[in-house]
């Protein structure tokens, strides 16, 4: 198991952002964390990265404890945050070099930067400042920079939010390629269409895990309940968060 969470809870004052989430992700899996804004996705991810300390529960990432061994985790994971995470006044190459300086990189950092520039087809624009790049390219550079230390776990917070479909497709191609090589990927999204791309999904609503499993599993499980042979993940999500708890759902905040 690359990620193993056991009833992880995070409270901010009286507000429970993440409520008893247990989750297991295998090596080489692409796991989607699905939920609306404020469902607790980012909080959960921040605990997995070791940025936030859980109020209760425990977990391990790559075999390291998320509370006691946060430093070990930080050295080994790649993280691409929801916000734009590059220095826009620096060039593509300078950004990559900077991150190569922060992480333990095998061999020389110059070589690693060169390797990534090649792999992500950034060679031609390495001297360009990030602010002058189109959105899709920026995201590509951000992705490359999160790969700088060849992490075995890649955590992506809403990587394709608001991206056009063609760009999104090639992004997923790349992700599948990495997964095939054994990299585990945890990706958050509030696009249901995106959730369909994952091997495994975990659906979050108001901090609680409402459904979890591989996509075919979930489809089979809900086919009967939803009276359709091939239920969509959106249908499943609405079913698990909606009926019966609609008022409860509304009264939050």
């Amino acid at each position: 198991m690359v990620i193993r969470l056991d009833s992880l809870t995070k409270r901010f004052g009286a507000f429970t952002a993440v409520d008893g989430v247990s989750l297991e992700v295998k090596e080489g899996e692409v796991c989607g964390l699905i939920g609306a804004n404020g469902a607790g996705k980012t909080t959960l991810i921040r605990m997995i990265c070791g940025i936030l300390r859980p109020t209760r529960g425990e977990g391990s990432v790559l075999g390291y404890d998320i509370v006691k061994e946060r430093d070990a985790i930080r050295h080994r994971i790649g993280y691409m945050s929801q916000k734009f995470s590059l220095y826009s006044d620096m060039t593509v190459e300078e950004n990559l070099r900077f991150f190569a300086g922060l992480y333990p990189v095998k061999g020389s950092s110059a070589d690693r930067v060169e390797e990534l520039l090649e792999r992500f087809d950034l060679e031609e624009m390495k001297k360009q400042r990030v602010e002058n790049l189109a959105g899709g390219w920026r995201q590509r550079v951000a992705f490359a920079s999160s790969m700088i230390h060849s992490p075995s776990l890649l955590i992506l917070d809403e990587p394709t939010s608001g991206v056009d479909p063609v760009t999104r497709r090639s992004f997923w191609d790349l992700l599948y390629g990495l997964a095939e090589e054994g990299t585990t990927v945890l990706v958050t999204t509030h696009y249901m269409s995106e959730a369909e791309q994952c091997d495994r999904v975990a659906m979050l609503n108001r901090g609680r895990l409402v459904a979890e499993g591989t996509v075919p599993d979930l489809r089979n499980r809900f086919a009967e309940i939803l009276h359709t042979p091939r239920p969509t993940l959106e249908g499943i999500f609405i079913h698990t968060t909606g009926e019966g708890s609609a008022d409860d759902n509304r009264a939050r905040g």
Binding site: C49, D71, I77, S81, S85, F99, L102
Partner: peptide, 13 residues
């Protein structure tokens, strides 16, 4: 503000 801090925080820095 720019969101780059988060990236630094998850790094070994």
């Amino acid at each position: 503000e720019r969101g780059t801090l988060e990236q630094l925080v998850v790094s070994p820095l």
